[in-house]
Amino acid sequence: MSTVMKIENLEAKIGDKKILKGLNLELEAGKVHAIMGPNGAGKSTLSKTIVGHYDVEVLGGDITYKGKSIVDMDAEERALEGIFLSFQHPVEIPGVNNAYFLRTALNAKRKYEGKEELNAAEFLRLMKNHLEMLGMKSDMISRSLNEGFSGGEKKRNEILQMLILEPEVIILDEIDSGLDIDALRAVSEGINKMKDGKRTFLVITHYSRILDYIEPDYIHVLKDGKVIKTAGPELVAQLEEHGYDAIEEE
């Protein structure tokens, strides 16, 4: 197996509260990893720590991505290196055109990779194709970033960004929250399209519903700031039946 990301003994706090308490996790390249756990277990903190969120202070341990430690890297550099977070609550940015934003992001990445930047026409073609696939209206091109978007539109827009930016490690933080069944289907379709055996997914979820749509390869149970169990997808049924309390630390 080839490991794309390795988290070792990670300790981190938000404010004065220590949340991650010696977390270990290995992400196998090309696989779908689901992180499940009760409220307050540290699921969102884990995703924030990986992407370098300003709220989080790392106290100990390390995160290596493709063999390099990333804990001291700027957030934008981690993004350019291929780590993408689909936000649980995407923030609204008034007046910033969605297409303009996304083209800027894509061209920043292309430049970083030494590729030619896309001009406006080339980019629009690319964006339109993806919009159709996600069942999104073409006014997504001209609307302001997340401004006045419904919950479903926001999540679809996250997936749209993922499709266009083509990251290598994709963290989906509660991607199914607030989605109706149609939106959930469209979002899952977008995600499954990205499953090509090379990209790695970290699906952070409270409920198992999303896992009916995106089949996980591994389930990691997170409790009190640590991964207490790792197993195959069969664990989902067990969790549904007995809850998190029945899981014993391995």
Binding site: D74, A79, L80, V91, P94, G95, A105, S144
Partner: peptide, 30 residues
């Protein structure tokens, strides 16, 4: 300019300076 807005843009690979300028331009658009 919220830290959350800046972070969102930076998480997409946009530098902090470009992110500030993008938010400000959006604000002045009207």
């Amino acid at each position: 300019i919220s830290d959350e807005q800046l972070f969102y843009l930076r998480q997409r690979g946009i530098t902090e300076e470009d992110a500030v300028s993008m938010i400000v331009h959006g604000f002045c658009k009207q």
